[in-house]
Amino acid sequence: MSNATKSILLAGVGGQGILRASDILSQVMIEAGYDVKKSEVHGMAQRGGCVTSHVRYGKKVYSPIAKKEDVDILLSFEKLETLRYLNFMKPDGTIIINNTEIYPPSVNLGESKYPRNVVEEVTRHFNDVRVINASDIANQAGNMRTVNTAMLGALSVKLNIGIKIWEDVLHIAFPENVFKENLDAFNLGRNA
């Protein structure tokens, strides 16, 4: 186990299941033997605003939030939100983008434009960029609310954690009636 603290930043829009995903990720890291801290802000921000969650793990973690240029992996649930947090990324960091667009109010009102070239902009600055269609995967898994587990599947490929740990944590995290759908979404995300 490396001594250095690693940081994963989950970002997206309220309602996408980001906090649930970061809870699951944190539990996986605990099961893998790491010290873990995670941080997010609730309250007013949850009403359709940006949502982020920092997950940090290592031998001994102090700060629950990462500083700028210190995040190893950005798991972005919405295309535009990816851009908002690029300055948190290490230059050689990994970025996983869900190919979904959710328009902010100013775009809906026609006052600003939703940027058309998000992925191009990201790949201009970073080498390790993956785009997945988590909504399609969730659809395929039979439950639109499994976008977050599909994203975790894609993330799991970048982490050296035994698949058994992921499965066990997912099993505890979800009630039996939706566990299968979530596990399917996770595996589809893994192979996406």
């Binding site: 829009v13 700028k68 535009l80 939100e81 851009l83 939703y114 998000v118």
Partner: peptide
Amino acid sequence: SSHKEGNVTVQIPMRPPNLC
């Protein structure tokens, strides 16, 4: 300051919270 901000050239619309 160790970080170099502003390397994104795209205009990023704000996403304030809203009534449901």
